[in-house]
Amino acid sequence: MGLSSKSMAAASDRLVLPQILWESSKLPIKSGQLFFPLLFLSLLSSSLLFFCYYSIAPIPLDLASKISILVKETKHRPPDLLTHMENDLKDFASISSVLVLFFFSFSLFLTLATMYTFAMAYTGSSLTPQDLLLRIARRWYQTMVTKLYVALLTIGLGVLSSLGVGTVMLLSGGSQVVFGVGVTLAFVSLFLYIYLLTRWSMSLVIAAVEETWGIGALSWAVELYIGNKRRGMVLTLMLAVVKVAIYGGFAAVVMSSGPEPSGTPMSLTYVVGAANAVWDLYSMAVYTVFYYECRKSHGLDYAGLSAALVKINAVIY
């Protein structure tokens, strides 16, 4: 899938960052009544995510206390300490695996529905609830595979970065030079993650909107990203800063409330869950607009793409 020679002429028509953010904020209104079910599902998913904190947190906290006893106590350990630790690990593994599967499935449905709805709204194409459900039924597998690729790439980058930075820090031995190398490596890893996250997020839009998916969507995102790296990275950095602030605020209140999860005010959970849900929807709107901006920068007509999708869907359905 090559890039058009019209890209140089289209460069002058590109939206600047404030315009992308503004256009993204208008997509919920353009989506009409379809936006309200998406907002409800996002609020539900985010609320459940934060409420799971109350059900899961006691297990790792209890396990951490047992590990502390295991390390500090050498003579007066409880005889069944290791058995209790094993049971805690089994409970945590069983609960977390179910929750990961549930939230991945929920996120898959919400991502596909939201990005396709916003894409049709941005291009001015009509979309009914029935059309949206049919699109989800036809593209859930393709979007799931693309999302799995993104998840595995994210985990792989995180593990490699952590191992690299951790190894350098352990070998520093108090050396300021080696420590500085570790800090530099951490910033480079963060820069690389922001750079790649923009492309990976755009690949999810491609999987939802176009007919390519998986490696094809990731490869097409790489091509569209050419000439748009600076805008994409700044957008991702801005979205990430707000996301970190949401979770950081929640973590700060949790830590100030004491080690027990029950000490965290429930009202805070509602507020943080709502903020997280709204920001997730807005982030998907931003990446949807950015995807079409990347197409436009390469001289590709998004109106033609939308018309082709309508014809394809009409034939298939």
Rank of each mutant, 00 (worst) to 15 (best):
G124I: 02
G173F: 07
S161I: 05
I215E: 11
G214C: 06
V159C: 04
L133S: 12
T114E: 05
V183T: 14
S125P: 07
Y149D: 08
G232F: 02
V145D: 01
V205K: 05
A208R: 09
R231Q: 07
E210G: 01
Y225P: 01
M115R: 13
M238V: 10
L224E: 02
L134P: 01
L239D: 02
M120G: 05
G216L: 00
L171A: 15
G174V: 08
M202I: 13
S161E: 06
M233S: 00
G156V: 10
E223I: 04
G216Y: 08
V234H: 00
L204M: 13
L134H: 12
L134A: 03
R139C: 00
R231C: 00
G227M: 02
L235Q: 01
V222D: 11
F118Y: 11
S172Q: 13
Y122F: 14
S161L: 02
T143L: 09
I215Y: 14
I155L: 15
V177N: 12
Q176H: 11
K229L: 06
L239M: 09
G166A: 09
T123M: 08
L192M: 13
A121E: 03
Y149F: 14
L204C: 08
V168I: 15
M144K: 05
V150M: 12
L160K: 07
M238C: 07
S189V: 11
I206W: 01
S189Q: 05
R231H: 01
L237R: 02
V181S: 08
L163A: 13
I206F: 11
V222Q: 09
M202P: 03
M233K: 07
G158I: 04
Y122C: 03
R230N: 08
N228L: 05
P129L: 04
M238I: 11
M169I: 12
A240H: 03
I206K: 08
A240I: 04
V188H: 12
V150K: 12
G182W: 13
G173E: 09
